[in-house]
Computed example of a mutant assay.
Amino acid sequence: MPANHIQDRAAGALMGAFIGDALGLGPHWYYQLDALHQDYGDWIDGYTDPKPGRYHPGCKAGQLSQAGFILALTVRSLVECGAYDRNDFCRRMDEELFPLLDGTPVCGPGGYTSQSIREVWRRRVQQKLPWGQTGSHADTTEAIERTLAIAIRYAFQPAELAANITDNTLLTQSDDIVVSMTVAYGAVLALLVQGHMLDTELSEKLMALVKNGTLPFHAVTQDDLQPPRPGDPDPPRAGRFASPDALLTPSYMAAAVADPDIRIEPAWKVSLVYGMPCAIYHQLPAAYYLAARFRDDFESAVLHAINGGGQNQARAILTGTLVGAQVGMSSIPQRFLDGLDQVDTLRNLAMALAAKVGDS
Rank of each mutant, 00 (worst) to 15 (best):
S180R: 03
L161T: 03
I152H: 05
A83M: 08
A155V: 02
T74Y: 01
Y185A: 05
V79D: 04
D85W: 06
L161N: 05
R92V: 09
Y185P: 00
E145V: 12
S114L: 12
Q194G: 12
A149L: 10
G103L: 04
T200W: 01
I150D: 07
T140V: 05
R123M: 15
L148R: 09
S116T: 15
I117F: 14
D175F: 01
V193K: 03
V106D: 14
S114V: 12
K128F: 05
L189P: 02
D102I: 06
P109M: 05
T113K: 11
R92N: 08
A155T: 01
G132Q: 05
Q127D: 14
M181S: 10
P105Y: 14
D139Y: 10
M93Q: 08
G108F: 00
D94E: 15
V188F: 03
R118F: 09
T169Y: 02
Q157W: 09
D199H: 08
V75R: 05
N87H: 12
Y112M: 13
V125H: 06
G186H: 00
F89H: 11
L191N: 02
K128G: 03
L202P: 09
I144T: 11
E95L: 13
D88C: 06
D176I: 08
G135F: 03
V79I: 14
S114I: 11
P105V: 13
R118E: 06
G108S: 06
S136R: 10
G110R: 03
L148G: 01
G108T: 05
A159C: 02
L73W: 06
M93S: 08
D88S: 12
A138L: 01
G82T: 07
M197V: 08
R153M: 11
